[in-house]
């Protein structure tokens, strides 16, 4: 770990100015991922700009009935927030499936969104990794690949995004509010995280200096049922092998709408548009679940160690849809 300066501005604009001015500067919030990375030598910032005083840490109802979540809201507070539990239970459930009580108390909404892959090669500075060191090669491609992506990967990177929260946000069609040197902008969360392509070093579409200030949720879909299902090797305190966030609307035993996002499959939370399309208008049957899942996984590319993810994802999605439509069949 190299020495760095530490500052703690009171306002977001000051923080943005400070980081924008210094290419070596990084934002620090809960620190659960960044401090880990400092120790591992994955990043060596010259300055840390602590944004905990500068960030909104409240959950507010918006004029359109949606909800704004300050980027500084800790994961535990967000998961426990009565409005979130009542109106967006899939988000609470996803948050509670992640990390541990202690980590959720520290980690923030913005930080969770920006957490980086747990690919073992990314986290080991002695091995090549295009995400950590562009051009050095991808060790995971031919290496230990149990966690590797099966969708949207490239020859440069097969890492997966580790967040549970972000998967739920994708299913909820959340928007990410960002403050940058040129002012504010809003980015749909489906599109906020990138696929690796030839530049896996960039996890998101943010530029240096841009600061996540809030996440906005549209009003809840009336009558929708939702759940978050995470499959992992330990019963708790483990990253997902695969996870599914799903919201469905069913009328007369037919899917009116479905919003489905996967975790553990790709470089970004994976919105399952094809599966959603297949389900819309289809009857609530085992066959529909299967066809939808197969459609989404049709283009999955697997390696030596991660082929299990395809049947696991298909089965998990079917299981989730079965659970959500129990009373419709």
């Amino acid at each position: 770990m190299r020495p760095f300066e530490y500052t703690r501005p009171a306002r977001a604009a000051e923080a943005v100015a400070a980081v924008t001015a210094d290419p070596g500067a990084r934002y620090l919030a809960g620190g659960t991922n960044l401090v880990d990375h400092l120790k591992l030598g994955l990043t060596a910032p010259t300055a840390l700009v602590d944004v905990r005083d500068a960030l909104d840490d409240t959950v507010r109802t918006l004029a359109d009935g949606g909800t704004s979540i300050g980027a500084g809201v800790p994961n535990s507070d967000l998961a426990a927030h009565p409005e979130i539990r009542r109106r967006y239970p899939v988000l609470s459930a996803a948050l509670l499936a992640g990390a541990s009580g202690q980590l959720r108390n520290m980690a923030t909404t913005g930080g969770n969104l920006l957490q980086r892959t747990r690919c073992v090669y990314f986290q080991d500075v002695t091995t090549p990794c295009n995400k950590r060191e562009p051009g050095s090669g991808c060790s995971a491609l031919e290496g230990h690949g149990r966690d590797n992506a099966v969708l949207g990967a490239s020859e440069f990177c097969v890492a997966t995004h580790p967040s549970d929260m972000a998967v739920a946000l994708c299913a909820l069609d959340a928007r990410v509010r960002v403050l940058g040197p040129d002012g504010e902008r809003t980015i749909p969360v489906n599109g906020f995280h990138r696929l690796p392509g030839a530049t896996p070093e960039r996890d998101t579409v943010l530029s240096h200096g841009e600061l996540v200030t809030a996440v906005e949720l549209p009003p809840p879909v009336p009558g929708a049922r939702s759940t978050y299902r995470k499959v992992r090797e330990r019963a708790s305190y483990a990253f997902a092998l695969v996870s599914v966030a799903a919201l469905v609307q069913v009328r007369d035993s037919q899917f009116v709408d479905a919003r489905i996002a996967f975790g553990g499959l790709a470089h970004a939370p994976w919105r399952a548009r094809r599966a959603e399309e297949v389900l819309r208008g289809r009857p609530v049957t085992e066959e529909s679940f299967q066809v939808a899942a197969d459609a989404e996984l049709a283009e999955a590319r697997t390696g030596r160690d991660n082929s299990y993810k395809v049947p696991l994802t298909v089965n998990t999605l079917a299981s989730v849809l079965r659970e959500l439509t129990e009373e419709d069949r």
């Binding site: 530490y6 620090l28 620190g31 659960t32 401090v35 880990d36 840390l48 009580g101 202690q102 980590l103 108390n105 520290m106």
Partner: peptide
Amino acid sequence: RILACLAL
């Protein structure tokens, strides 16, 4: 409750 190892 927090983890002191990840807090600066």
